[in-house]
Amino acid sequence: MKRFHEQYIIDEKGQKTAVILPIEEYEELLEDLHDLAIIAERRDEPVIDFDELKKRLKENGIIQD
C-alpha cells in the first residue's frame, strides 16, 4: 500500500480539521475513486470468459493470432 505524505491542519483544540496532500497524490486518489465508481456501475453487467473475449477481439480485428 502506498504511503501518503499528508499534513494536517488542526484547530485550537488540536483536532485535525483538514488535510494537505501533494497534488500528485491527490490526483491519484481522484483517479482511484473514478476507477472504483466505474467498477460499481458495471457490477451487474453480464460476464464473458477469457476465450470468448479473445474470439470477439479477433473478429473485430483488434488482435491477431
Rank of each mutant, 00 (worst) to 15 (best):
Y8E: 11
D32P: 04
E59Q: 03
N60F: 12
D65L: 07
M1K: 09
K16R: 15
Y8A: 14
I23G: 10
K54L: 14
E41C: 09
T17A: 08
L33Q: 13
I23S: 08
R43S: 10
I62L: 03
E6T: 05
A40F: 10
I20K: 15
E12P: 02
Q7L: 07
H34M: 10
D32V: 01
V19N: 02
I39K: 08
Q15F: 00
D51E: 10
A18T: 03
E28W: 05
I10M: 13
Q7V: 04
L53S: 12
I48H: 00
F50G: 10
L57D: 07
E27N: 14
A37V: 14
H5C: 05
K54I: 08
M1C: 10
R56M: 00
E24I: 07
R42A: 11
D11N: 06
F50A: 12
V47S: 08
V19G: 04
K13H: 07
Y26L: 06
I20S: 10
H34K: 15
L57Y: 06
E27D: 14
K58S: 01
K55M: 05
H5T: 03
E28L: 04
T17R: 11
E59C: 00
Q7E: 09
K58H: 04
E24S: 13
Q64I: 08
Y8D: 11
D32Q: 09
P22M: 03
I20T: 12
Y26K: 02
E27V: 12
Q64M: 09
I48L: 10
L36H: 13
E45A: 08
P22H: 00
K13S: 08
D35I: 09
E12D: 15
E41I: 10
E28K: 01
A40G: 11
G14F: 01
R42K: 13
V47E: 07
P46L: 01
E25L: 01
A37N: 13
K16I: 06
D51C: 05
K16E: 07
I23M: 09
E27T: 14
Q7C: 06
I9C: 11
G14P: 04
E52M: 09
T17I: 15
I63M: 04
F50P: 08
K16P: 04
E41V: 10
H34N: 12
Q15D: 14
I39Y: 10
G61F: 06
K13E: 09
I10W: 01
E6K: 08
Q64W: 13
A37W: 15
D49T: 02
H5A: 00
